[in-house]
């Protein structure tokens, strides 16, 4: 009995690789596309942030122009209340007590409730 030998020309190659089609764009193209997209996003973001900074500066300056007027009104009101309070105290106690050990103006943290609502 003759020995079993390979066929003439050898065996066929064994197919071990998967044979799938490469789909979509090339990786380099995808990378470049992502880059472009991101740069566009950054561009818009930068523009938006700069515009917001401008808005903020505008708002800040409008406030700066208004602060003296608002503060002056508030100060006058505080002085009015303070003087009225001192006068009331003088009338009731006969003298003005010094509550704080300082000459600074201290916004009152208490309020004396009048018996009758003043008009």
């Amino acid at each position: 009995m003759p020995q079993d030998m390979p066929p003439v020309g050898g065996y066929d190659a064994v197919q071990y690789k998967r044979n799938l089609p490469a789909r979509g764009f090339r990786p380099a193209a995808i990378l470049a596309g992502c880059g472009v997209f991101m740069i566009y996003g950054w561009y818009k973001l930068t523009k938006g942030i700069r515009e917001q900074n401008e808005y903020a500066r505008e708002k800040m300056w409008s406030r700066i122009h208004l602060i003296p007027a608002l503060q002056a009104e508030e100060d006058r009101d505080q002085v009015r209340r303070y003087l009225a309070d001192q006068a009331r105290e003088k009338e009731l106690l006969g003298e003005n007590l010094k509550v704080y050990h300082t000459d600074r103006f201290v916004r009152p943290t208490y309020a004396a409730t009048p018996e009758n609502v003043t008009k």
């Binding site: 602060i67 003296p68 007027a69 503060q71 002056a72 009104e73 100060d75 006058r76 505080q78 002085v79 303070y82 300082t102 000459d103 600074r104 103006f105």
Partner: peptide, 25 residues
């Protein structure tokens, strides 16, 4: 003027700066 007055009279600006405050208003 008003803000300078307030700055130069810390703690007393409420009384000292009434004149400047009236001008501002």
């Amino acid at each position: 003027d008003y803000m300078q007055c307030k700055n130069e009279n810390p703690g007393r600006g409420e009384f000292e700066c009434l004149k400047e405050g009236r001008r501002v208003t």
